[in-house]
């Protein structure tokens, strides 16, 4: 069910399927709207705009304009869904989930984990906001990090021969970043979401009060820690069900033996 929603969401956001064969991106009016998840607008399939790319485009413009429209969309989606976007709607999150399903050595807990979590806030502040503001026409996150953009570059190069000779050192750098992310996703669950994604960092601020949130019935909770053991984001939902790190994957809800944990728009009736 959960992966079905992710697949449908990824398909809807990349519904320009013929673009994957022609190498031509969609240019219609739907691209006025930012999609909720990380989905590069240069992906041949993309039918919407990437919110992080659009934000940087405004901030790195030659003439500064406050990006009311993009910030408004981010706040609206954040208040409505919080990081449920990461768990249900983000195509790059879905890609990581698919890779994690491949049988391989798995390790989700390690010493640096809790420190590396702060990296995504630094990425948001420095690469998405400060650098584009200080260096005009430089969407630093998209240019040097975003693996979704690299995947788009690969699709474009596969479909359009004229793109291939233009891919140089920058593409090779981004390819290395993408490979690190994908290999990490084979071992740890959602490494990009945990440590790097600026969009997840932003939506995380809304997790505590977003309309779609986790509900814990303290009377039903028997403190068995089944939820904590099930959580691949290394959160203890019985202590902090609406942690900024929670991507609403629902593993804790499914593993709770007393059904003390639920998630949704409306709290369950007691």
């Amino acid at each position: 069910m959960h992966m079905g929603i992710q697949a449908v969401a990824a398909l809807i956001q990349n519904a320009n399927l013929k673009g994957f064969f022609t190498g031509k991106i969609y240019k219609g009016d739907l691209k006025k709207v930012c999609v909720p998840g990380l989905n590069c607008y240069s992906c041949p399939g993309a039918v919407g705009a990437c919110p992080i790319g659009s934000l940087q485009s405004f901030l790195s413009g030659l003439k500064f304009r406050f990006p009311y429209y993009v910030v408004g969309i981010l706040i609206f989606v954040g208040a409505l869904l919080g990081r449920a976007v990461c768990g249900f709607l983000c195509p790059f999150g879905f890609l990581q989930d698919l890779i994690y399903m491949i049988p391989f050595f798995k390790k989700n807990q390690f010493v640096l984990d809790k420190y590396l979590r702060y990296l995504k806030y630094l990425v948001l502040l420095v690469l998405v906001i400060l650098l584009p503001l200080c260096i005009p026409l430089t969407p630093a996150f998209c240019k040097y990090v975003c693996p979704s953009g690299t995947v788009s570059g690969i699709f474009l190069a596969l479909a359009d021969k004229t793109i291939r000779p233009q891919l140089g050192a920058l593409f090779h750098w981004k390819l290395i970043v993408l490979l690190i992310v994908l290999v990490s996703a084979l071992i740890a669950w959602r490494p990009f979401c945990k440590y790097i994604c600026p969009l997840g960092a932003f939506y995380g601020f809304f997790n505590k009060f977003a309309l779609f949130r986790m509900h814990l019935d303290t009377e039903k909770c028997v403190h068995c820690h089944a939820c904590e053991k099930a959580c691949r984001m290394n959160i203890d939902p019985s202590k902090n069900p609406n942690s900024m790190e929670c991507v609403r994957c629902g593993d804790c809800v499914r593993n709770c033996p007393t059904k003390a944990l639920t998630q949704g728009f409306i709290p369950p009736k007691k």
Binding site: G149, S152, Q166, L167, K174, L175
Partner: peptide, 9 residues
């Protein structure tokens, strides 16, 4: 096509 995004620069 966003040149920076896809790695052309």
């Amino acid at each position: 096509i966003c040149m920076e995004c896809v790695g052309i620069g």
